[in-house]
Write a protein that binds this DNA or RNA. Sequence first.
DNA 1: CAGCCGTGGAT
DNA 2: TATCCAAGGCT
Length: 344
Amino acid sequence: MSGSLLAWYDRYARVMPWRVGPADRAAGIRPDPYRVWLSEVMLQQTTVAAVRDYFRRFTDRWPTVTDLAAAADAEVMAEWAGLGYYARARNLLKCARAVVADHGGVFPATREGLLALPGIGPYTAAAIAAIAHDEPATVVDGNVERVMARLHAVETPLPAAKPELVALAAGLTPADRPGDYAQAVMDLGATICTPRNPACGICPWSAPCAARARGIAAQLPRKTPKAAKPVREGTVWVARRADGAILLETRPERGLLGGMPGFPGDGWDGAGGGPPLAGDWRLAGEARHTFTHFHLILSVMVDPDASDAPLRGAFVARPAFRPADLPTVMRKVWDIASGTFGHS
DNA sequence: CAGCCGTGGAT
DNA sequence: TATCCAAGGCT
């Protein structure tokens, strides 16, 4: 079974910054565990296209896990800004520091050792073990779930079907080239066995595929319907001082946008608060943003000439304030606020 | 275990 | 415009 897939992978494997080329692979050169780990964490629930540039910037700036472990928290959060799921960045730093402090700067080579580290769950542990160390670990991500559901025509809806799909995937994991095999199944799911309109005609596994035989490939995997997103409304305040400084606050470590900088708000995020200072506030506009589990409509209040001391947060000098360091929703807020600053 | 946690691209 | 979806982990 794995032979036809590996042959396909050898011919069509996608080129990515964190992969080693075919020549190096043939020479027995393994990928750097640090780069595998970093790429896999970035790729959690995130597309390859979105990850590419972030991966390059991180590895340019912090070439080794030791470099990353020594970085300041705010620098890492700023570099992660825009990629989403910010708990990943916080755990990334915790993990890097644990690898340096507890493992001499070397990533554990086993699935169990990796699983004990922050931000590394069943998928990522198996992926690192397989890809970096060629351990026969079973890698199960969304792609593998979909491929297994179709290959074996599993009609049980997700997430209930997960254990069954994991068992089926484990049964197929080969002892030969498990790292390439893991990437091959994921590439297959990403490029051929896609959620809609799977390209069964060119699939290396079309012959053994039970769903293909029954004509139900596109309908699998079935999923239990998810709840509709509610709409939340709130207010944020953007204060600019006469010297150009901007009022920001660092958000709490846990929860939405945890650990990231942002403009003070009125509790739309579960936090509390009114205006961060007694200023001359006026409405600049409305920011709309959709998170994983709710839609958000934010009224953007601005005071372009704030003078009072802030009750919350701290003014950041204009040269040190970089909108690119903000999470996307806050960048939208800044775009609306700064638009009114321009001609005020 | 189900809810929480971002974002941008595709359809 | 609305919905779905992507190489999940944590609580």
